[in-house]
Nucleic acid binder design. Structure first.
Length: 560
RNA sequence: UGGGAUGUCGUCCAAUGGCAGGACAUGCGGCUCUGGACCGUAGUAUCGGGGUUCGAAUCCCUGCAUCCCAGCCA
C-alpha cells in the first residue's frame, strides 16, 4: 500500500480513523460479523463481511465471528457450517474468536433479572395479537399493558417460572418498560424474551425462553467489547433501544454505524426469497451456480479475490442503491484473465475436413498457455485432417462485418494454419453439416511467410483427439433488472428467466483437458471462463461457464 | 397525518465552503495469432425553489421524491 497517494475512503473508515486519532476506546478497534444461521450466505453478506473484517485488518485490529442464534425455530447447524466455510473461503481468519449469542444466554438472563429488579422490565400476559393491537400505529401511540405495573417480586417469580418451563409457548413475555407513546415503535415496551419450547442447535433443551434479537444483539457486542458495531441501515431505528438497554445496565457501549446493504441488478438478495427459490425447486440447491450465494458463486467459478475486489469497488454508503451486475462480471474477468490457463474448446461443433492434409496423419502444434503470464509456458495441441470449429464461426452468407469463415474465405486456425473454405456440405434439410477446406502448409504456427493477413482467428479441436464434455451455460436468473418490481397482483417468481440454464452436450475439448478435477478454472479461448463442476465423474467432464469474454461481435449484432 | 434515514454521470462511489473526480457501462480510435486483454479518447450528473457567501454538491429555509419501522423474525 502506498501511503503517499491519498487513499479512497468512505464514511465508516473516516469515523474509525478519527476515533483512533482521538483515542476513543484507547485507540482500540474491534469489529465482528454477526450472522443468523438461518440460510446460506450470499454476496450481500460478503459485502458486510468485507466491511467489518476488511476494516479491522486495515487497522491491524481483531475481528470476531458471532452467530446471532437467538431463534432456534429457524436456525440450523447446517447453516452454521456453511457460513463458516464460506467466510474461510473468502480467506478471512477470526482466529479463536468464534462466538455465539447463545454463549451469553445466562448473562442475558441475569441482566434481565436486574432490569426487573430496577423496575425496567415486566412479565406481560398479553397474547401476540393483543400486543400488536395495543402497540398503536405509526401515527397513534400505543396503550400500556395491564401487566405493566405489576410488583417487582411478582415479575421475578413469574420470569423464573417462565425459565423453568411452567408456561406454554406464547403465554407470556418479558417486556422492557420504556414508552408506549414513543414515535419510534421499537421503544414501545419491546419484547425481550418469549417462551419457545424448542431445541437449540447449541444449547439443546437447556432453555425454553429465548432472548429477542434486540435484547441480545447490543449486549453481545458489548460483552465482546466491539468498538464499532457495523450493521445495515434498517437497524438505525433500533440503535436507541440498544443504547437504552446498555444505559440501564451500565455496560460498555459499542458505537453502532449503519450502512446500506447491497442490491445487485438481475438478482435477488433476500434470504426469504432465496429460501423460496431453493424450496420450490426453481434452482437445484443453495449452491446452484445461478444463485448469488457464495457457494453458488464458488461453484460457478467465482474466486474469493474477485469477490473481495468487487466489495472494494462498490464502496460503502448509506443510500439505497443497486450495483450493476456488469461490475461483478468485470471483477471475475479481471482476476481470471490473469490466472486462468487458456485452452480450446468447441461448444457447438461443426466438422471441418482439410482435404489437402494427409489422411491418417497428425502433428503437435505449440500453443501459449496464458498470454498474460509468460511463466505459464506453452503446451502441444494435436492437429489432423478432421477438425471441429464453432458453428457460429461460419456463415454461408455473411454480413459485412462478419470476419470469420465463409465460402471462399481464408482464416487462421489458432496456433495452426490458414485454411480456406472451398465447399459447404449440407444435409437433406439444408443444414450445414460439414465444411471442406484446404490449408496452406507454409502458414504453420499461424503466420504467412508472404505477409498476407487474415481478419479472423478461430479456435478448433482435432476430431480424433478431442474429448467430449457437457457444458452448462448460465444466464441471469431473472429477466428483469429489478426482479422484485412486479405488477399489481404479480409474483416476482414470474420474472424468472426460463433460459437461465442451457446444457450443451457433445462439446469437443482439446485433449490437454483430460483428467481435470472439479474446481479447475480455465479460459476457452474466444468464449469465456469455465470451471469443472462437482458433478463431473471420471470420464464425464462437466464445465460451468463462469462468465463470457467481452464480445464485440455480439454487441455489434445486438445493435443491428 | 408519527419516528428514522437518503437524494451527485446510465450504474456505484468520491469531493466536508475553493477547477464536480474515479470505477463500471456505453461510443469512437489504436493494437492484436482470442472481435479477449491492453492503450488512447468522448459524452453524460449535484432533486426543485429561495437564501447566506467573493465563492455552495457542501451552510440555512422550504418543497418534492425514495427507503425503513406497527414479528413473541433477524
Amino acid at each position: 500500500m502506498n501511503n503517499e497517494t491519498p487513499e479512497k475512503s468512505h464514511f465508516i473508515r473516516n469515523i474509525i480513523k478519527e476515533d483512533v486519532a482521538r483515542g476513543v476506546n484507547d485507540g482500540r478497534v474491534h469489529t465482528r460479523f454477526p450472522p443468523e444461521p438461518n440460510g446460506y450466505p450470499h454476496i450481500g453478506h460478503a459485502k458486510a463481511i468485507c466491511v467489518n473484517y476488511g476494516l479491522a485488518e486495515e487497522f491491524h485490529a481483531p475481528y470476531n465471528l458471532r452467530f446471532d442464534d437467538t431463534n432456534p425455530v429457524k436456525e440450523e447447524q447446517e447453516y452454521i457450517d456453511a457460513i463458516i466455510a464460506d467466510i474461510k473461503w473468502l480467506s478471512f481468519d477470526w482466529e479463536d474468536r468464534l462466538y455465539f449469542a447463545s454463549d451469553y444466554f445466562e448473562q442475558l438472563y441475569q441482566w434481565a433479572v436486574k432490569l426487573i429488579r430496577d423496575g425496567k422490565a415486566y412479565v406481560c400476559e398479553l397474547t401476540a395479537d393483543q400486543i400488536r393491537e395495543t402497540r398503536g400505529t405509526l401515527t397513534k401511540p400505543g396503550v400500556e399493558s395491564p401487566y405493566r405495573n405489576r410488583p417487582v417480586e411478582e415479575n421475578l417469580d413469574l420470569f423464573a417460572r417462565m425459565k423453568n418451563g411452567e408456561f406454554p409457548d406464547g403465554s407470556k413475555t418479558l417486556r422492557a418498560k420504556i414508552d408506549m407513546a414513543a414515535g419510534n415503535l421499537n421503544l414501545r415496551d419491546p419484547v425481550m424474551y418469549r417462551i419457545l419450547h424448542a431445541s437449540h442447535p447449541r444449547t439443546g433443551d437447556d432453555w425454553c425462553i429465548y432472548p429477542m434479537y434486540d435484547w441480545a444483539h447490543g449486549q453481545s457486542d458489548s460483552i465482546e467489547k466491539i468498538t464499532h458495531s457495523l450493521c445495515s441501515i434498517e437497524f438505525e431505528d433500533h440503535r436507541p433501544l440498544y443504547d437504552w438497554f446498555l444505559d440501564q445496565l451500565g455496560e460498555f457501549h459499542p458505537q453502532q454505524i449503519e450502512f446500506a446493504r447491497l442490491n445487485l441488478s438481475y438478482t435477488i438478495l433476500s434470504k426469504r426469497k432465496l429460501i423460496r427459490l431453493v424450496n420450490e425447486g426453481h434452482v437445484q440447491g443453495w449452491d446452484d451456480p445461478r444463485l448469488p450465494t457464495l457457494s453458488g458463486l464458488r461453484r460457478r467459478g467465482y474466486t474469493p479475490a474477485s469477490i473481495r475486489d468487487f466489495c472494494d469497488r462498490i464502496g460503502v454508503a448509506k443510500k439505497d442503491s443497486t450495483v450493476d451486475l456488469a461490475l461483478l462480471e468485470h471483477c471475475i474477468r479481471g482476476d481470471l484473465n490473469k490466472q486462468a490457463p487458456r485452452f480450446m474448446g468447441v461448444l457447438r461443433p461443426l466438422k471441418v475436413v482439410i482435404d489437402n492434409y494427409p489422411e491418417g496423419e497428425s502433428e503437435e502444434l505449440e500453443a501459449v498457455n496464458n498470454p498474460e503470464d509468460p511463466s505459464a509456458g506453452t503446451r502441444e495441441v494435436p492437429f489432423s485432417r478432421v477438425l471441429y470449429i464453432e458453428r457460429e464461426d461460419f456463415m454461408e452468407d455473411p454480413p459485412k462485418k462478419f470476419f470469420r469463415l465463409a465460402p471462399g474465405r481464408e482464416v487462421r486456425l489458432r496456433y495452426a494454419y490458414f485454411i480456406t473454405c472451398n465447399e459447404v456440405v449440407k444435409d437433406a434439410d439444408g443444414e450445414v453439416i460439414e465444411l471442406r477446406c484446404s490449408y496452406d502448409p507454409a502458414t504453420k504456427g499461424g503466420d504467412a511467410p508472404d505477409g498476407r493477413k487474415v481478419k479472423a482467428t478461430l479456435h478448433w479441436v482435432s476430431a480424433k483427439h478431442a474429448i467430449d464434455a457437457e457444458v452448462r451455460l448460465y444466464d441471469t436468473l431473472f429477466t428483469t433488472e429489478d426482479p422484485e418490481d412486479v405488477p399489481e397482483g404479480g409474483d416476482w417468481i414470474d420474472n424468472l428467466n426460463p433460459k437461465s440454464l442451457e446444457v450443451l452436450t457433445g462439446c469437443k475439448l482439446e485433449p490437454n483437458l483430460r483428467g481435470v478435477e472439479p474446481g479447475f478454472s480455465c479460459q476457452f479461448e474466444r468464449q469465456g471462463y469455465f470451471c469443472v463442476d462437482q458433478d463431473s465423474d471420471g470420464d464425464k467432464i462437466i464445465f460451468n461457464r463462469t462468465v463470457t469474454l467481452r464480445d464485440a461481435w455480439k454487441r455489434m449484432q445486438k445493435k443491428g
